[in-house]
Write a protein that binds this DNA or RNA. Structure first.
Length: 273
DNA sequence: AGGACGCCCTGTTCGC
DNA sequence: TGCGAACAGGGCGTCC
C-alpha cells in the first residue's frame, strides 16, 4: 500500500534510475492505466527526450520531461517501480527485492537498453502526462505534503474539521500522504482512539498528532519504507487479525472506520468523548 | 459544503 | 475438494 514513505522511496528510485538518459521507446502494455492521456500523446511527449527532475506531493509522483510537461504516477494500492538492465540486475523499489516482475503496465526503454517499469496489480493506480505540475496538484485537491506542512497550519486545518480523527488525517485535501496504515500507526503512537472526534481534541493533542505524523513518516522514509527495519514499538509489525499491542501485549481491536479497516489497541488508545 | 458511503479492480484467503 | 464469497483499500462520484 504505497503511502507517502513508499512514494518518496519511488521518487528516489526514479532519481537514481530514470533521469538524464534519452528514452528510446515508451510501451503502454495496459492502456487502461492511462489517465487523461492517450498512448500516442504519451509517446510523443516522452520518446527521444530525457527525464530531468522529480517532484512528490503526498502519494503523487511527477517526473519532468526535458522540453516541457510532466509524467505523473499514482500507485493505487499495489503499484511499484522496477528497473532492469540487460538480462541481469533487476532492481525493485522500497527495499523489497521479492516483488514480482509482473503486472507491468507502462515501460520506458532508454537508449542504453535500461528498462524502467511501472507495475500495478490491482489497477487502482494511474499514469499520464500533464503540462503543469502545480495545476495537476491543484486539480487533485491536494493539501500540503505531510512532511512539508508546519505545525501551526496543520493544527489550524484540523480545527476546522468535524467528525472522527482518523478519516480527517486520511483526507488528502487536509494533509497529503497519510494513508490507512500510517494513520493507524501515528494514532497508536499518540495513544489516541481513531474514532475520537476532532472537535473534542485539545490543541496540545493535535500538536502530538503532528509530531507523531512527522516522526512516523520520517522514520519510514529513512529505512526506504522497508517496514521490517522499523523500531519494534511500531504497530504495523502486528497489525493483523489477532495481533497484539507491541507495548503491552493487549489484543488489538479491529473495526471499519471511515470505510477502512482500522487496527488499534483498546487499552493504549482508550476512547474519550 | 462538508462529511459519509458505495464502487472500481484483481489476487488471495476463507468458508461451506 | 472445489468453487464462490469476502476481503484488501486510494480516490472519486454521489447523496444528503
Amino acid at each position: 500500500m504505497p503511502e507517502l514513505p513508499e512514494v518518496e522511496t519511488f521518487r528516489q528510485f526514479a532519481e537514481q534510475y530514470a533521469l538524464n538518459r534519452p528514452v528510446r521507446q515508451v510501451r503502454v502494455l495496459t492502456p487502461k492505466i492511462l489517465e487523461n492521456t492517450t498512448e500516442a500523446q504519451l509517446r510523443q511527449q516522452v520518446e527521444t527526450r530525457c527525464l530531468t527532475h522529480t517532484r512528490r506531493v503526498g502519494k503523487h509522483l511527477l517526473i519532468q520531461i526535458e522540453g516541457g510537461g510532466w509524467l505523473f504516477l499514482h500507485f493505487g494500492m499495489t503499484g511499484y517501480l522496477s528497473y532492469a538492465q540487460g538480462s541481469q540486475r533487476i532492481v525493485n523499489a522500497y527495499g523489497n527485492p521479492a516483488l514480482p516482475e509482473k503486472h507491468i503496465r507502462v515501460q520506458l526503454e532508454f537508449e542504453d537498453g535500461g528498462l524502467f517499469n511501472f507495475h500495478e496489480q490491482r489497477m487502482f493506480g494511474k499514469l499520464g502526462w500533464t503540462p503543469q505540475a502545480d495545476a495537476y496538484f491543484k486539480a487533485k485537491k491536494l493539501g500540503p505534503d505531510a512532511l512539508e506542512v508546519e505545525k501551526a497550519p496543520f493544527i489550524a486545518a484540523l480545527q476546522k474539521r468535524k467528525g472522527q480523527l482518523k478519516p480527517a488525517l486520511m483526507d488528502q485535501s487536509l494533509v497529503a500522504g497519510v494513508g490507512n496504515v500510517y494513520a493507524d500507526e501515528l494514532l497508536y503512537q499518540c495513544g489516541l482512539h481513531p474514532e475520537r472526534l476532532v472537535s473534542g481534541l485539545p490543541a496540545a493533542a493535535m500538536g502530538e498528532v503532528y509530531t507523531q505524523m512527522v516522526a512516523v513518516l520520517r522514520d519510514t522514509v529513512a529505512v526506504q519504507a522497508d517496514r521490517d527495519q522499523l523500531p519494534p514499538h511500531y504497530l504495523l509489525h502486528t497489525r493483523k487479525p489477532k495481533g497484539r499491542c507491541p507495548q503491552g501485549n493487549h489484543l488489538l481491536d479491529v473495526k471499519s472506520i471511515g470505510g477502512r479497516t482500522t487496527y488499534f489497541c483498546p487499552i493504549c488508545q482508550p476512547f474519550l468523548g
